[in-house]
Nucleic acid binder design. Structure first.
Lengths: 211, 211
DNA sequence: GTCTATAGAAGGATAGAC
DNA sequence: GTCTATCCTTCTATAGAC
C-alpha cells in the first residue's frame, strides 16, 4: 500500500522492508502475509513467489535485525580505546541507534524467548575468543583500579547494556508509571539526557566501588 | 493434559492457570485455545462455557499478571523506610520474585507494546499522587545529599528497576553472549549475586555522584 | 514477474446430546 | 457441567492465466 507496484525490479527489497516492519510490530505469530503484501504494494501470490513461506521470510528478516543489533553493540565494544571512553561512546551511539529502532529490543527478545533455536544463526557470527577478550581481558587492569574483579565483569556488562536497552523494551510500562513522558518527543529527550546520566552514574559507581 | 478432569468444581481455576501458562509462554497471538484446554484437562467447548472468548480469557489473565508485577514493586517502594533500605529490600525481594516468574517481564512488555490499550485497566489501580510522592518527594532530602536532583529521579527509578528486570527480559540474549550461564541454575546464582552487586553499585554511584 | 481465484489447513466458536 | 461433532472465518499456500 506504501506505493503502487512499479515494474522495476526492487520488489524483493520492498517485500523485505514491509516484512521487517510488520514482523517488528506484530511478531511472528501476529504478522499476516496479507498485511506484508499490502504494505509492499503487491499481492500474496507474488509474495510467495519471492519467499516460499512465512517462516522463510521471517528467518531472513529476523537474522538481519538480530545482526543489526549485535553489530552495533560489538562494533563499539571492540574498539581499541579505554573502558571509560568506550562506555561514553557506547551510550552516545547506542541510544541514538535505539531511538531510530525503538521496537527492535522487545521484538528480538520476545521472538528469541519463544523460539530459542533462533539464536543458532548468531552463534556462528560470534567470535567467542574476541568476545571474552573484550569482556574479561582487555580492560582488566583499568577496571581492577576500580575494584572490579574479573568475576564482576558479567554483572558490569549486563548493567551497561541495560542502561540503553531497557527503557526501550519497557517503554510502555514507563508510559504508565510516568505519563509525563508519554509522547515520543519527550521520551527521546529523556533518553538523550540518559546518555550522560548513565555515563556519570557508572563512572561514579566504579570510582567508589568497594575494593 | 496435566491431570484428567475431576468432577470437583475447580474447573474454572484449572482453566485460568492453564491459560496463564500458555499465554505467558506463547503470547496472545501465539496461544491456542486447544492447548489451554489440553493443559486444563478439558476440551474446547467447556473452555468456551467458562470464558466466552479467547480475548476475554486473555484479559482476565493479563490483568492478574500485570497486577502481580506492579503490586510487588509498589508494595516495597511504598514502605516507610529510607531510600537505602528500600533499595536493598527491593533488589532482594524483587529478584527472588523474578526467579519464580522469569517469563513475566517479556510477556507483559511484549503484550503491552502490541496493544497499548491493555494499560487502561492498570491506570485505575495506580494512585498517581502516592506514586509521585514515592518517586519525587519522600526521598528528596536523602537523595539531595547524594547530589540527585528532583529532575534526575525518573532516571534513577528506571535504573533501579532495570537491575532486576532487564536480565530476565534479556535472558536469551545473555545466553548467547555468555554461554557459561546458559542453564537456569547458574543464571539464578548469577541473579542472586546481582542483589548485592546492584545495591553496592547504586549506592557507590550515589555517594560519588557529582553535585 | 505479476495477477485472480481457490485450495486446504488451522483455529475460534457454537449446537445439541447426555 | 461436560462432551462430540461441526460450523465458519481466517490465514497460508498454490494453480494457472497473462
Amino acid at each position: 500500500m506504501t506505493r503502487p507496484a512499479t515494474s522495476d525490479n526492487q520488489t524483493r527489497q520492498r517485500i523485505f522492508r514491509a516484512a521487517a516492519e510488520v514482523f517488528e510490530e506484530k511478531g511472528y505469530t501476529g504478522a499476516r502475509m496479507q498485511e506484508i503484501a499490502d504494505r509492499a504494494g503487491i499481492n500474496k501470490a507474488l509474495l510467495h513467489y519471492y519467499y516460499s513461506s512465512k517462516e522463510q521470510l521471517f528467518m531472513a528478516v529476523f537474522h538481519v535485525l538480530l545482526k543489526k543489533m549485535f553489530e552495533k553493540i560489538f562494533s563499539i565494544f571492540s574498539e581499541e580505546i579505554s573502558f571509560k571512553e568506550k562506555l561514553k561512546k557506547f551510550l552516545e551511539e547506542h541510544i541514538e541507534f535505539m531511538i531510530k529502532n525503538p521496537k527492535l529490543p522487545i521484538f528480538l527478545l520476545n521472538e528469541l524467548s519463544q523460539n530459542p533455536a533462533l539464536a543458532e544463526g548468531l552463534k556462528e557470527m560470534i567470535n567467542y575468543g574476541e568476545l571474552r577478550d573484550m569482556i574479561y581481558t582487555r580492560h582488566a587492569k583499568e577496571l581492577k583500579g576500580y575494584g572490579i574483579k574479573k568475576n564482576d565483569m558479567p554483572q558490569l556488562m549486563v548493567t551497561v547494556v541495560s542502561f540503553s536497552i531497557f527503557p526501550f523494551a519497557a517503554r510502555d510500562m514507563i508510559k504508565i508509571m510516568m505519563p509525563e513522558m508519554g509522547d515520543t518527543k519527550k521520551f527521546n529527550t529523556y533518553m538523550r539526557e540518559r546518555k550522560s546520566f548513565a555515563s556519570d552514574f557508572i563512572m561514579a559507581a566504579l570510582k567508589h566501588h568497594k575494593k
